[in-house]
Design a protein around this nucleic acid. Structure first.
Lengths: 325, 325
DNA sequence: TTGTACGCGTTATCAT
DNA sequence: ATGATAACGCGTACAA
């Protein structure tokens, strides 16, 4: 049986109100030190734990945040990125909030699911992972009064969103490769059409000039290796390649190996990918490690600050460091 | 403002009790059809949503399950496996339960965190991901009265646990390789000492006889490739290798490539790994794909059945199919 | 067929 | 300094 404030009050011989005040160190808690000690010690002795549900009902605040993601069954890589989840969970917990997980079928449903959860009172706000948003979604989300933070490339200035600076990190990679002496830089991307990849591709197009033809879209390492092979065979081909996901990186390394070229000498490979997959790659490639843990931490912090009354921070964009594996 | 049963009652001109009964289709809901319709329509019109917190407080049941994991900062691969999380989330949601995520610092703390959460009433049970359990942990968990399901290799017969059949899948792999004509089968494992790997290594030791010396522990692909190189150079070396994680698989393929041998002709490689990482590997290797999604689904189902009063199912072990990549 | 009254455990207001 | 008392929204035993 759970110990309640009333039980403590009965044992000590005071009213339940006093118990509540003392246990929560409220201003009224300045009761007779003797009474105070009796309350505290019996509470500890009986193993009192405040009932979070009753608190939430009374305070009209659940202290729960929902993390909402869509799980596209057709995707080959699982969509629920755990790294950002961990960051969110840790940060929220530190501030006394709990984290709920919900899976929506489609992005369109996310707004509905969220407002449903808010309406039933089980959460005070939502962190939504959105890879493919739409104008309609932004509109729906703006109509929700509780705090919302998006994880993903949301362009709307009135919505808090955390993401990596896609154009920025491509520029950074290109600049880095330029400094290394490369002028012809190819790009390999997976066949997904989300904003992140569009922005990245756009940034690359704008900056590589005549190298624009060295562009490939591939899904598996073998396809990608075959797509890149002609680049490597061409004496006027690119001397550096940017790869945007694991399959692209592995495909590129395969192709480079098969061509007989040496990574880091004849050609440079720059991977732009989740930091957690760096152990999959061979040494010698450059790496813009997207830190999803940091994304999660930022998202949780933005959520907490909004819950505390701060204004909506709008889009926040993160930049990784370039490292050499 | 949230719409309550009382407000509906006022509008319709009945008592809140009737509203509650009608809205939940209870036995008492057999009110005058006319009243009934008025209640239902105004409820819909006003956008009534039951307050889950009040329900939970009244019913003494939160309909929330917590998923508890430790996040070992020293691990190179993130520990929060999203695939099982997704399975848990989907299944629980179908049954009207919500999923909470909690991160504990150490495995020892998991029992404390869980009982704390149960004491505050915010969850009805816990799904714990445990890679390195101890007798003490099992004891602590057994003292908790609410349903608990473990994800991981827990040997205790009185604790529900979901995991892959580690010895079984090693036997399966060895049998499969034997059928392919291999008699000398090596094993490469990562430097982790959890029950899963211990069981797997034990099963391998028991069955490969004289090949027992073809055993390597390595962390990165390069180390592993170097460890295996002598095996491949040895004319009496193993003709098949079982690799137990991504780094091992990548290290083995690297080594095989460098040795000039052809995968599937000169040597066979059998990967035992998370199904979701299959896209990382080269074609031609055999693959026991551990289906974490299925693990999550089983865990959630076990939890739900226990919540509904079924007896503790004890350990449940899953077996993957072998596929050829 | 419908309404009253109570309790779940807490916080907050207002007396004393 | 302390205690009644009233909500919060809902479910349910009991009365009408």
């Amino acid at each position: 049986m759970a110990v309640t404030q009333t039980e403590i009050a009965k044992v000590v011989g005071v009213s339940q109100t006093i118990v509540s005040d003392v246990l929560h160190g409220r201003a009224r808690g300045r009761v007779r030190p003797e009474t105070r000690q009796r309350i505290l010690s019996t509470a500890r002795q009986l193993g009192y734990r405040p009932n979070a549900l009753a608190q939430a009902l009374r305070m009209r605040q659940s202290r729960q945040i929902v993390y909402l993601a869509t799980l596209d069954e057709t995707m080959e890589f699982p969509a629920l990125r755990e790294s950002d989840l961990a960051g969110v969970a840790k940060t929220l917990r530190q501030q006394g909030y709990r984290l709920l997980i919900e899976i929506a079928k489609t992005t369109e449903q996310e707004a509905n699911v969220l407002s449903e959860m808010i309406a039933t009172g089980i959460c005070d706000g939502g962190i939504l992972r959105v890879y493919r948003g739409s104008e309609q979604l932004w509109k729906d989300l703006l109509e929700i009064s509780e705090p919302i933070v998006l994880i993903g490339q949301c362009p709307h200035p009135d919505l808090a969103s955390i993401a990596h600076d896609a154009p920025g990190l491509i520029s950074q990679a290109i600049k880095h490769l330029n400094d290394l002496g490369h002028t012809l830089i190819g790009l390999v991307v997976p066949p997904v059409h989300d904003v992140y990849h569009e922005l990245a591709i756009g940034a690359w197009r704008n900056q590589v000039g005549p190298a624009e033809k060295w562009f490939a879209v591939g899904e598996h390492r073998r396809d990608i290796a075959d797509l890149i092979a002609p680049w490597l065979a061409d004496p006027n081909g690119p001397t550096a390649i940017i790869a945007m996901n694991p399959a692209c990186v592995l495909g590129a390394t395969t192709s480079i190996r098969e061509s007989g070229k040496i990574l880091g000498r004849d050609i440079d490979l720059h991977a732009v990918d989740d930091l957690s997959s760096r152990w999959t790659y061979e040494p010698g490639i450059w790496f813009s490690g997207l830190d999803m843990d940091a994304v999660g931490i930022h998202a949780a912090k933005a959520m907490i600050s909004m819950l505390e009354g701060s204004p909506n921070p709008g889009p926040i964009r993160l930049m990784p460091e370039i490292i050499c594996l």
